[in-house]
């Protein structure tokens, strides 16, 4: 089966650190639309460390309750980057991608709207092409959705073997 995948490419070398992407994202998600600007409500952030020449636009992905245990530091072309500099998780370790009033996570929705946008707003605002948008078709395996019970049972079967599980289930069924 083919599926349309929407992708934002990030070219770190082209970023001038201007944060127009944050401005545009927050304006687009304001109610009414474009009525206010507030980068701290943006779902994209340019992680910046000027002394390290680090400019990394990251996009809010998923909410997670816990922060990582330990982090890696990557060295790329002689510059150190924390793992967090590339991570879009909305996590307790940082004050990022959380609504400043409610604290609720702000997740990137690729600016889905009606009528649809040609490109997400952050990409539209990036005149330097540090952010570019593409839609690609990807072949994906057809997936049969399995219920939680079945997934649970599968893990028991994997561990104890089908025969034992079958016997137990039969015994339980006849207990009364």
């Amino acid at each position: 089966m083919k599926k349309k995948v929407r992708r934002i490419r990030v070219n770190l070398d082209k970023c001038n650190g201007c944060r127009a992407c944050e401005m545009a994202c927050s304006a687009f998600h304001a109610t009414p639309r474009y009525s206010s600007v507030n980068p701290s409500r943006s779902r994209i952030r340019v992680v910046t460390d000027i002394l390290n020449d680090e400019y990394v636009p990251i996009r809010a992905t998923d909410y997670t309750k816990a922060q990582c245990d330990g982090r890696r530091v990557y060295t790329i072309n002689g510059k150190d980057y924390s793992e967090c500099s590339f991570c879009g998780s909305i996590c307790p370790a940082r004050d990022l991608f959380k609504d400043p009033d409610s604290g609720l996570p702000l997740k990137c929705d690729m600016c889905e709207s009606d009528p649809p946008q040609d490109e997400p707003l952050c990409v539209q605002a990036c005149s330097l092409d540090a952010l570019t948008y593409e839609e690609v078709e990807e072949e994906i395996e057809e997936e049969i959705k399995r219920s939680e019970v079945e997934l649970g049972l599968q893990s028991l079967v994997d561990r104890y073997g089908l025969v034992e599980i079958r016997d137990i289930v039969t015994r339980m069924a006849h207990r009364d």
């Binding site: 304006a27 304001a30 474009y34 206010s36 507030n38 701290s40 400043p100």
Partner: peptide, 13 residues
Amino acid sequence: TKDVYVAKPEELF
């Protein structure tokens, strides 16, 4: 982390 509002949002943007 506060909002800055504008008077004519659509036209200005």
